[in-house]
Design a protein around this nucleic acid. Structure first.
Lengths: 261, 261
DNA sequence: CGTACCATTGATTACTATCAACGCGCGTGG
DNA sequence: CCACGCGCGTTGATAGTAATCAATGGTACG
């Protein structure tokens, strides 16, 4: 189980894991569980899904799962651990595109270019279910639930990426980020108020288009306001309601004097 | 040129249009042309594609094509005109998510939520091919080329949205935007150096996460450097190479005095 | 012919990046 | 065992880019 986190991982809460599946069954939290359940675990169709999946890992923190430019053949569903995707421009500057938690699928943005447009890097010790995309496409042609699931995942990813689009203050971005991660852990059945951040401040900052110092300062400020408890990468959300307000507030400074007009 | 634009549109430069299709044929520039051509124009399969498409329009500038919250049933391929998608938060502030030119498809981000997550607003007089998504899914199950095309469009949209992600200077953002629009017009077979911007400065600014004053200033600066000619919404790229450099340069601070040199 | 919106330009503000220094934990190697 | 280096995170001081506030001219439209 999680008991043996390979490198003498210091104390701290165990890492969420989604490995209730085995050779014969998919993980309950797997990105494809819905499709599988719809189809039914015992039908021959499922056997085919089983055949086109491969369990890979472990990847250690810092390992590349794939690299920008690699030919696209497979998509990766995270079983346990965390992944970041990022592009590196020619000057060597990195741009974090996203983080993927257990049950989420990495690599969908590679279908169109037919090459991975970004790197994927493990942040934790990470395991995947690897699916052959061509095989899955064929299956999708025969099983509407699989096809629909792929469409939905792709569409969802568009929405996820768009949500970063707005021009928000540093406070708003950080609050939104914390709540987003929390809700994704909640989906996995883990605590939505207490969890471990697998990524560094630098990665968070990069993802949010901020400087890492700014992220540090915002977190310090949130802690001072008793909105969160944070120690290293261990986080507890003390006031999610207020965080939500911060994330959504639109008026950076409401110096509302009598603008009653 | 493109013979008959249905409603007698007032003066002004002709708007790029992609309506070489008719009842029996799809537009050559249509987002689905590839799928159609792969299948073959004369096969029975294509007849089904024809059956699930509907030509709708015209929409006038400012008209809503769909609104956030509307139930999702159809996707829209732009035949002619331009569309912006945007979300409006509860305080009434708008956030532009994207612009869609002829041949591009609007609405793919609605598959997952099963409702449109954003508004779509015509910026021009605009016509669409409207596709029933459930019907198209069924067809995709039988015609691999159609399914593949949907996957590719979805994946491509993820990449498009991600490209806004980076933290770039105002100059970089504007240069990137101009080149992106130019290349998309080029794909349509129109000039890639001279075209009409259908959207206001405010929309561009909003899309790029800038203030409209900033966009104005950048454009003025680009004109002063002889990188572009711009008059109202008529634009000519005089030095796409240099614009590309600006879009990609990494060091914001370059004390360029003798630029024109 | 007035109203409203768009675009441009100027002056000022302010948010966040940048530069800099320091503490801390950890692995390495003397 | 302890010195050392290194990456990470925090905090402080300063500066710069773009937002905001403000005013003007142009243009479409009723």
């Amino acid at each position: 189980m999680h008991s043996k986190l390979p490198p003498g991982r210091s104390p701290g809460p165990p890492n969420p894991i989604a490995d209730d599946g085995d050779e014969a069954h998919f993980c309950g939290t797997c990105a494809f569980s819905e499709a599988c359940l719809t189809v039914g675990f015992n039908k021959p169709d499922l056997r085919e899904l089983q055949c086109l999946v491969e369990h890979v890992g472990p990847f250690r923190a810092g390992d590349y799962v794939f690299r920008a430019g690699d030919p696209f053949r497979t998509i990766f569903a995270v079983r346990s651990g965390t992944v970041k995707t990022c592009i590196t421009d020619k000057e060597g500057r990195e741009q974090v595109l996203g983080f993927y938690l257990p049950g989420e699928v990495v690599g969908l943005n590679a279908i169109y270019p037919e090459r991975f447009p970004c790197d994927a890097v493990a942040l934790d010790t990470t395991f995947f279910c690897r699916f052959s995309f061509p095989a899955m496409s064929v299956l999708a042609g025969r099983i509407p639930a699989v096809q629909q699931h792929l469409f939905r995942m792709l569409s969802k990813e568009i929405g996820t990426v768009s949500s970063l689009a707005g021009d928000h203050s540093a406070d708003q971005r950080v609050a939104t980020f914390l709540l987003d991660i929390a809700s994704r852990y909640a989906t996995l059945g883990f605590s939505s108020t207490r969890f471990h951040l697998s990524m560094s401040r630098g990665d968070i900052a990069n993802y949010l288009r901020l400087a890492s110092e700014t992220v540090s300062r915002v977190l310090t400020r949130f802690r001072a306001k008793n909105l969160i408890l944070i120690e290293g990468r261990e986080l507890e959300l003390l006031d999610p309601v207020r965080l939500r307000e911060i994330a959504e507030e639109r008026l950076p400074q409401q110096a509302n004097h009598g603008d009653g007009s």
